[in-house]
Design a protein around this nucleic acid. Structure first.
Lengths: 117, 117
DNA sequence: CTCTATGCCTAGAATGCCTACATATTAGCC
DNA sequence: GGCTAATATGTAGGCATTCTAGGCATAGAG
């Protein structure tokens, strides 16, 4: 996995996961891992700062849930603003991937070099 | 355009453009712009450092061509190593976009150039 | 007891795109 | 002639984001 590719999609993936129902950090990594058939491994060093950033920006809200006598999980729920951002990022992703595929699949070559080697 | 999305695909796009025949910086930006129907605007501050980096890494070779009495163009030609990297990045991109679409719930659906229309 | 999995977190390094600028030629326009 | 835009390459510093590598703690399996 080229980590550079993940830049710009991480927030979208997180918003997508938590939009139907709240979830917590560790569960998000597992969910993404499953849905991508083991391909997308979110690292904690990327995910947790992203979650905190998104909460600061008002895209997410968090609350603690006791999952045992001394085990706690920090759940994240998407806000209205977060939902709007999710939809924007979905459109952006579609346009971007279509644009990249357009460049990678274009057959007609225009304006390239008639160069001499 | 979310510039973060471009990270990791810029090199692939450049290799793709110059792989059939050599080209030069300015022409590459115009070619990408055309093929993506105006969506992907490569900035000079991104492209030129990338070209230099890729030449340093042995993915590209360059040579000057006179395009007028006092105008010169620096053409880039892909190397064998660059071709191998291009193929690797193509596979990587397919896997990555499929994985993202898998998480987003659009399994099997890939963005096509028509989506730009 | 030890190892793995679960669960949260941060500091600093590394990466790589962008803004803004610098420099210069060429062509169209009035 | 003078003005503007397009063509053409390049660098410096800023900025955002990921990763590495750790810390801390509970729980279950062998």
């Amino acid at each position: 996995m080229d980590s550079q590719l993940l830049a710009g999609t991480l927030e979208m993936l997180v918003l997508q996961i938590v939009s139907p129902q709240p979830s917590y950090g560790y569960a998000i990594t597992q969910e993404v891992l499953q849905r991508s058939r083991g391909y997308l491994e979110l690292k904690e060093g990327s995910l947790y700062p992203a979650l905190h950033r998104m909460e600061r920006e008002g895209l997410l809200e968090s609350y603690w849930v006791e999952a045992g006598p001394k085990r706690r999980r920090k759940y994240y729920r998407v806000t209205a603003k977060g939902l709007a951002v999710l939809e924007a990022k979905q459109s952006e992703w579609k346009r971007f991937s279509a644009a990249v595929n357009g460049v990678m699949g274009a057959t007609g070559v225009v304006g390239t070099a008639d160069a001499l080697a």
